[in-house]
Amino acid sequence: MTRPRRHVADQVVALTRRTVEGRFFTRPDANINAVAAYEFARSASRSGVVVHGAVVMSNHVHIVLTDPQARRSDFMRDAMAGFTRARNNFFGRTGSLWDTNRSYCDTVLLDREVFEIQLLYVLLNPVKAGLVRRAKDWPGFKIMPSDWEKPMLVERPAAYYGDDQPEAFEFIPRRPPGYDAMTLEEVVAHFEKRLREAENEIHRQMKKQRRRFLGVKGVLATDPLSCAKEKRRRREAAPRYAAYHPALLDQAIVRERAFRSAYAQVRERWVQGKKRCVFPNGTLWLRRNAPVKCREHDPWEAGLAANYVPHSSDSATGVDALAG
């Protein structure tokens, strides 16, 4: 039995999906930008997820969102399948658009500090990769702090989609949780300041290493059927949880282990045909594909702790593994 995914309502998560062989199938162009906007809007409408940030790179996508109904698996299934169908039609190819050796990466963000680290990592992807000087210059689809709370009317792309699909969706990227004491303008300014500071540091490092940015023209000139010349370094699996404060990470790991143990025991009884099996909260596949009962949501479940007050001994934990 493979390790089950565990999705709990109201978790804040970072999701990543990579293309097959690292090919540049999602390289920026008018088609992929329109497809990404439509698929994200349609899939968010269906699943109820709340998107805070996203960047569609040339060979992978990053999304940071809140999952109120524990349905992000549905969001990723629908959006990624839509990407595949539309992009295959565009290229005249068949087969999977995404890496079939591994599924999407799913990391639950447990506190505000690690949320900021991850969101900045996502938005800075094109800059760190040496593609554009500023995150706002990336010609691909993206959702940035300046987009928060602004309704987007996303129309159905002219290519591929038939009249049986909705003509348009209203899609509203939302400000992240945990900033209730700040106005929207203050929250946006906070993230934009951190973004500029990080960009400037990358510029200093690039200059020190005598590296140059490829630039928008260079990005758009890249062959979408090609892949990076250098083989991508094999990375370890993304962590299930990430936190800046160790206490939160420890609590989440304890709950994850308890879930796996309970799930294995109940599943064994269920396979044997025994009745009155109640699966632990967070059960995903069986809850969606079989008539099983699950326990109610635990109000103390690990999630993004906006009001968590750290101890002086707390330090960053599980952060480095996020960059992937």
Rank of each mutant, 00 (worst) to 15 (best):
E236I: 14
G318R: 03
D250V: 13
A70H: 02
K293Q: 11
V51Y: 00
L119E: 12
I253A: 13
E113S: 15
A41I: 03
S45H: 14
V20A: 09
S96P: 09
R288I: 07
L97W: 09
P177E: 07
V188W: 02
C294Q: 12
E230V: 01
V50P: 07
P310E: 06
L284V: 05
A189C: 03
M206Q: 11
G82P: 07
L119F: 15
T222F: 02
F83E: 01
A158L: 06
D137V: 02
M1V: 13
L225F: 09
R18E: 03
V56F: 07
H52F: 04
G162H: 05
R235L: 09
A159G: 05
D78L: 12
L120C: 10
R269Y: 13
A36T: 09
F24T: 00
L220G: 07
E230T: 09
E268W: 10
V35E: 01
N89L: 09
L123I: 11
A243N: 12
S103C: 14
M1Q: 13
P4E: 02
Y244D: 11
G82F: 01
W300T: 08
T2R: 15
K128H: 13
G53F: 02
L65F: 03
H311D: 15
D99P: 07
N31E: 12
I253S: 12
S96W: 01
I253R: 15
L214P: 07
H190T: 08
Y104C: 13
V216L: 03
L220S: 07
I172V: 13
L123N: 08
N125E: 03
A70I: 00
A316Y: 08
D298T: 10
V8Q: 15
P126H: 06
A243K: 04
T19N: 12
F24H: 00
D164H: 04
A181T: 12
N59M: 00
R295I: 01
R196Y: 07
G22D: 08
Y38V: 02
L120I: 14
T107R: 04
D29L: 02
E201N: 07
A198F: 03
F90Y: 14
P139L: 01
L284N: 10
F259Q: 13
A243V: 10
G215P: 06
L109K: 11
R42E: 11
V292K: 02
N59A: 00
L184T: 09
V127S: 13
P139K: 04
R211C: 06
T2F: 14
V319G: 07
F141D: 13
G324A: 03
A228H: 00
N125C: 02
P280N: 05
Y179M: 08
A237K: 11
A306F: 02
H7P: 04
L65M: 09
T2C: 11
R210I: 08
N281S: 11
